[in-house]
Write a protein that binds this DNA or RNA. Structure first.
Length: 247
RNA sequence: CGCAUCUGAUUUCA
């Protein structure tokens, strides 16, 4: 069972929805009973290839499969796919529907919404979702939530908002992680705020946060795109001095 | 160095 789920996941990541029916057939031949996980991985195979119609066919099937009814994970995937296609009304419908079935959206469900609203610069919607998360108890914001918000403001050049949300993150008691810092670095680098970019790295070193290959790659990329080859090479040197292997 | 590992969902267009 777990093997089929894993294989289905591979089909999703490699964008091969054409092979999903073949795998299902094989599963039936092996008399392997289906599971929520398997069905959900199948939904994911289709959403990853933007085949929403097929994903929804599977979703409707699941409703009639005893023991394989859609769960929070299934809904999170479908809601994310709807948002990605800007079908926000459909996403809201699904949210209402899952609650009808007694399923409460969790942190990931909301993170998906935050990420998608943020990606499109729909900041008031994004912040509204964040407020919902804080108000409810079953979906507390996690570091992914914060990082998504920081990233959304960062890529749109709203580094002022990014900074105030970073402060808010720190005072919330949540620990930033390497993705948090890489998100800040990427935003500063993209918008030419090199001093702030360097300040983030200095902060990471000062407070002993691990720096990774992504951290350095982002800085090399920023300097490279700006034609600042001297600084770029300097970063590359420091990277090797720190024992971080270039990839 | 190679192999293995890398969860059915979200930050990862590094």
């Amino acid at each position: 069972g777990a093997t089929f789920v894993r294989l289905m996941g591979m089909l999703g990541k490699s964008k091969r929805p054409d092979l999903a029916p073949v795998l299902l057939q094989k599963m039936v031949e092996d008399k392997c009973p289906p599971s929520v996980e398997l069905y959900t991985s199948l939904v994911s195979v289709y959403t990853r290839s933007n085949l929403l119609d097929k994903a929804f066919v599977v979703y409707e099937d699941m409703k009639h499969q005893v023991g394989c009814e859609p769960d929070v994970w299934t809904y999170s995937i479908l809601i994310g796919a709807c948002c990605e296609s800007c079908m926000f009304d459909k996403a809201q419908e699904l949210l209402a529907e899952m609650e009808q079935y007694g399923l409460q959206p969790n942190t990931v469900t909301y993170n998906t919404l935050i990420n998608q609203y943020g990606r499109l610069g729909m900041f008031s919607h994004m912040e509204q979702v964040f407020e919902d998360m804080e108000r409810k108890s079953q979906c507390p914001p996690d570091i992914w939530t914060w990082n998504s918000i920081l990233k959304s403001y960062g890529v749109k050049g709203r580094t002022d908002k990014m900074e105030s949300w970073f402060d808010k993150l720190c005072s919330s008691g949540m620990e930033p992680d390497v993705v948090t810092f890489n998100t800040l670095i990427k935003a500063y680098g993209r918008h030419g705020l090199y001093a702030k970019m360097q300040a983030v790295v200095a902060y990471m070193h000062k407070f002993l946060y691990p720096v990774d290959v992504v951290t350095y790659n982002l800085m090399i990329d920023a300097y490279g795109k700006a034609g600042r080859v001297v600084q770029m090479e300097e970063v590359f040197k420091r990277m090797k001095l720190r024992g971080v292997k270039p990839n």
